[in-house]
């Protein structure tokens, strides 16, 4: 015998369930309507809904989910802070190191925590000072590069009439190895840290700008931007509100790559003698110790270990943070 399934609608009228409909069709409680009437209240009707979503809170929640990345960030932060403390607790002032032949190549001991170099100078204060110089320079240069790169990239991608100009400029600068420009600047303008830092920024925005430009190209003509433009949104607002959120993760990733990159570049430049060598920096230490590594490995091990730890932890933490910044990975 066949029974006809029925459900009840709001008017409590029974309606038959169509043949072959699955269980999810409607499942009200027997004898009760599927919906309840709501009281009409003007305030409630006007209330606009918004979820509890906050971009940066989501980023943070996604980031701390990755325990390894958080650990990396903590290690980086501790080391970074320690580069400021270490020269203070040192027994020697890095700017007044005494050259003492009788103390040269002292292995690490209780007085000279990292030993001494080929001139008998304390290595601890030199290594930490060099690290601090490198990290500060890297952070400022990378920030400058990324800021300039993002700004130029936004304009390059968004303003069509400027596309040709920037493309030619990009090709012109990019066709020649940067080291040529850097050498020319170092020897003609000056080797001071400021000049070289500014030059690194001036020749370092290219990659970021191109990357940003390509992304802006992808998003600028999407329908939502078209609609936004038609509704009269200002260009600046479209750039900052509609397009920029898509770029955050790329920018963060670029930053995570730029800091180790800048440290490496600065080391190279100093090693090549293209940068100010009056204060100890990583390149100088490695250059001075170049001939002595083989017999006195601690001259290499200490700076190498500290710098590598800083760059690797920052790189990994930055990568994880960049993943967390991508709104597509949010709930």
């Amino acid at each position: 015998m066949e029974t006809t399934k029925v459900v009840y609608n709001v008017d409590k009228r029974a309606i038959p369930v169509p043949e072959g409909a699955n269980e999810l069709y409607v499942q009200p409680l027997p004898g009760r309507p599927a919906f309840d009437f709501a009281e009409y209240s003007p305030e409630e009707a006007e209330r606009t809904g918004s979820s509890e979503y906050s971009y940066w809170r989501s980023v943070w929640r996604n980031f701390i989910k990755k325990k390894s990345a958080v650990a990396m960030l903590i290690v980086f932060a501790i080391l970074f802070v320690f580069t400021f403390i270490a020269p203070q607790i040192s027994k020697f002032d890095v700017f007044n190191l005494r050259i003492d032949d009788s103390l040269m190549f002292t292995r690490p001991n209780s007085t000279f925590w990292f030993g001494t170099d080929n001139l008998g100078r304390d290595y601890w204060s030199q290594v930490w000072h060099a690290t601090r110089t490198s990290v500060i320079l890297a952070v400022s240069v990378s920030t400058g590069q990324i800021l300039l790169g993002v700004l130029i990239g936004l304009v390059w991608g968004y303003v069509r009439s400027l596309d040709r100009f920037f493309t030619e400029l990009y090709n012109f600068i990019n066709n020649i190895p940067t080291i040529i420009y850097m050498t020319l600047i170092a020897l003609m303008v000056g080797k001071t840290t400021v000049v070289m830092g500014v030059s690194m920024i001036l020749f370092g925005w290219l990659g970021t700008a191109r990357n940003i430009r390509n992304l802006v190209f992808m998003y600028r003509d999407r329908e939502y931007n078209l609609a936004s433009r038609c509704l009269g949104t200002k260009t600046w607002r479209i750039l900052t509100r509609n397009i920029f959120p898509y770029l955050v993760s790329v920018i963060v990733l670029r930053m995570a790559l730029a800091i180790p990159g800048t440290i490496a570049y600065e080391t190279t430049l100093t090693y090549l003698g293209l940068m100010d060598i009056s204060t100890p920096s990583l390149g100088i230490l490695l250059r001075n110790a170049r001939s002595f590594f083989l017999n006195y490995p601690y001259l290499l091990v200490f700076p190498a270990a500290i710098v590598s730890t800083i760059t690797i932890t920052f790189y990994l933490a930055g990568n994880a943070f960049s993943d967390a910044c991508d709104p597509r990975n949010h709930l």
Binding site: L257, P260, I263, A264, T267, T268, Y271, L282, G283, L286, R290, F293, L294, P297, L300, P303, A304, V307, S308, T311, I312, F314, Y315, L316
Partner: peptide, 28 residues
Amino acid sequence: TVFVNAVPHLVFYSLVLTLGARWLGLPS
């Protein structure tokens, strides 16, 4: 790849130099 990308090349070369010259006896 992370190691090579994150560690400054100069540091990396120094490591290769030290290992190669100290343990394999290659000319530095």
